[in-house]
């Protein structure tokens, strides 16, 4: 009975959603007939918002990746919130699982080959992750994927060292410093320029690593933060004491 109700609701939702999105007359091409209006002083500009992003990325932010420019600069406050969501989740997980951490009694030792191979691979994983978040403004990458790659390296360590966990205190301190750095970069924008998260560094030469103002700095902070947070989450899910 329950399954029939669930199935009929799901099918109804499918039909309505699919019909709506397929037949909707949304102007998918953002280039035609677009304009945007500043809602405060009602100035109008004869291009749409995505066009403004694509045309203005180079002059406004100095980045070559428009998605990065949107994520870190144009809509940077969203990303500040996004980092906080992950931070909140990591905090909640620590709150819930702290009580259950204990020493592992029965462990299966990992294979010799796996142990040695992981030690060889780990530095490369960390280097790749670092590369990804440092080059966020030039390539499709950034702090989140870079941090996730680094955390996957730590996951490898957790899988190999079955007896031990990571050092929670160090992870928390890294996470704290990275988060504070991000918030301070934003607050400095309020002091040195006029607005929160506004760029106050020179844009540099387009297309090089040291360009795009505060974007690489923010992505480095995010990379450290995401890396340590995801590692901490994995460590807590494993549930082993660090000593």
């Amino acid at each position: 009975m329950r399954k029939i109700i669930a199935a009929s609701i799901a099918i109804l939702v499918f039909v309505v959603l699919a019909y709506f999105f397929i037949t909707s007359s949304a102007p998918i091409d953002y280039r035609h007939g677009g304009y945007y209006e500043n809602p405060i002083n009602h100035e109008q500009y004869n291009q749409s918002v995505p066009q403004k992003y694509l045309n203005g990325t180079r002059q406004d932010t100095g980045a070559s990746n428009a998605v990065t420019a949107i994520v870190v600069e144009y809509r940077g406050f969203d990303t500040f919130g996004e980092v906080t969501v992950l931070f909140t989740a990591a905090t909640g997980i620590a709150l819930l699982l702290e009580a259950y951490r204990r020493k592992m009694e029965r462990v299966v030792e990992s294979n010799f080959i796996v142990r040695i191979a992981s030690i060889v691979i780990l530095p490369f994983i960390v280097v790749v992750g670092t590369y990804i978040f440092i080059h966020g403004h030039l390539t499709p990458g950034g702090g989140f994927p870079g941090g996730a790659v680094i955390a996957s390296g730590f996951l490898l360590m957790l899988l190999v060292k079955t007896r031990k966990g990571l050092n929670e205190k160090n992870l928390t301190i890294t996470e704290s410093f990275a988060g504070m750095t991000y918030a301070l970069i934003g607050l400095l924008g309020l002091v040195l320029a006029q607005e929160f998260l506004q760029n106050y560094l020179p844009l540099g030469i387009f297309g090089t690593v040291f360009s795009a103002g505060i974007i690489p700095l923010i992505y480095i902070a995010i990379g450290f933060k995401v890396g340590s947070e995801l590692s901490g989450i994995l460590d807590h899910l494993k549930g082993v004491h660090s000593e």
């Binding site: 329950r2 199935a7 609701i9 099918i11």
Partner: peptide
């Protein structure tokens, strides 16, 4: 995918 997810959640 959305509908399948909805079905799974409900059933």
């Amino acid at each position: 995918l959305i509908s399948i997810g909805l079905y799974g959640v409900m059933s």
